[in-house]
């Protein structure tokens, strides 16, 4: 074998190992959802069953947790996407000497342990509102706590899209008589639409799977993650595996759909470039008919 062949073999082997590490635990967990044993295990196999899925569907506490997670997720979208957008726009306009400091402040929640964000949110708002204020509730605290750092994710998404926005378009719109608001709605937002979509999805997913912050901010209620954490710590049963399997399946389908959408966009872009090239080759007719 040539040295290149050996090299290739090792790379292939390493990739196999790595993706095994990545997916193996999840696959095994998924498989345990079908085992008819009271503890999530592959071995011994006590016969296939779908009971664990049925159990999951009847688990009221879990369903309530899912409901709360959805609610909080929507709340986080409503808060974090507009904040992230504003944060990104301000970043493009801010006085350049203040930019470094501003950036540091707004990305700091990404570098702060989630536990600390949760604690500080609860402490601060309890003090600000008083412990029996109706707004001092698990929902509201969790939305605020999660939005603190999820807004920063959203901002980064908007920033990377904004970097490709040609400032001259803003001036062109104003020059043609648009007001600032018209520019915002008719030119900037349509341009940012894919980013708004990505930011919303990302915000929802990060909210949905968050544990460290939520466990402090959810107070008397539960979300899916805090409910799960409680179960797992008490001992486990295969309906958790069933739930995990469902989540993995949904994510996979979402990812594949997204990939298909991305490819179609790419193809459309390529078609356009081809049309433009054809127009280029055709040459220029006289503008003014004689």
């Amino acid at each position: 074998m040539t040295s290149k062949g050996i090299f290739r073999f090792f790379i292939g082997f390493y990739l196999l190992l790595f993706f095994g590490y990545l997916f193996g635990p999840l696959l095994i967990m998924g498989a345990t959802a079908f085992n008819n044993s009271s503890y999530p295990q592959l071995w011994p196999w006590e016969g296939g069953t779908l009971d664990w899925f049925v159990k999951l569907a009847n688990d009221q506490a879990m369903l309530r947790g899912i409901g709360n997670s959805l609610l909080v997720g929507l709340g986080v979208i409503c808060l974090a996407v507009p904040i992230g957008l504003a944060g990104a726009i301000v970043m493009t306009q801010i006085y350049w000497r203040a930019r470094g400091l501003y950036y540091l402040v707004v990305v700091s929640p990404l570098l702060t342990p989630g536990v600390i964000i949760g604690i500080s949110t609860v402490l601060f708002w309890r003090q600000l509102l008083g412990a029996d204020h109706p707004l001092y509730s698990g929902y509201f605290m969790t939305i605020l706590g999660q939005a603190t750092f999820i807004s920063a994710y959203c901002m980064l998404i908007f920033l990377s899209r904004l970097q490709r926005f040609d400032r001259a378009q803003e001036e062109a719109a104003l020059d043609l008589g648009a007001s600032n608001l018209q520019f915002f709605w008719q030119v900037l937002l349509p341009f940012l639409r894919p980013a708004v979509f990505s930011a919303a999805v990302l915000a929802f997913l990060s909210s949905f799977e968050n544990y460290n912050t939520t466990t402090f901010t959810i107070l008397a209620r539960t979300t899916l993650t805090t409910e799960l954490a409680g179960r797992v710590r008490q001992g486990s049963n295969p309906s958790l595996s069933a739930l995990a399997l469902l989540i993995i399946t949904i994510t996979l389908i979402g990812a594949i759909l997204y990939e298909i959408y991305k490819r179609r966009e790419d193809r459309r872009e390529k078609d356009r470039a081809a049309v433009a090239a054809a127009a280029e080759a055709e040459g220029e007719p006289a503008i003014i008919a004689a």
Partner: peptide, 16 residues
């Protein structure tokens, strides 16, 4: 700029 009777053609065109 949106209130002036001028229209500008940009160096890079700035079409939407």
């Amino acid at each position: 700029p949106n209130k002036r009777p001028t229209a500008l053609i940009f160096q890079n065109l700035a079409l939407f």
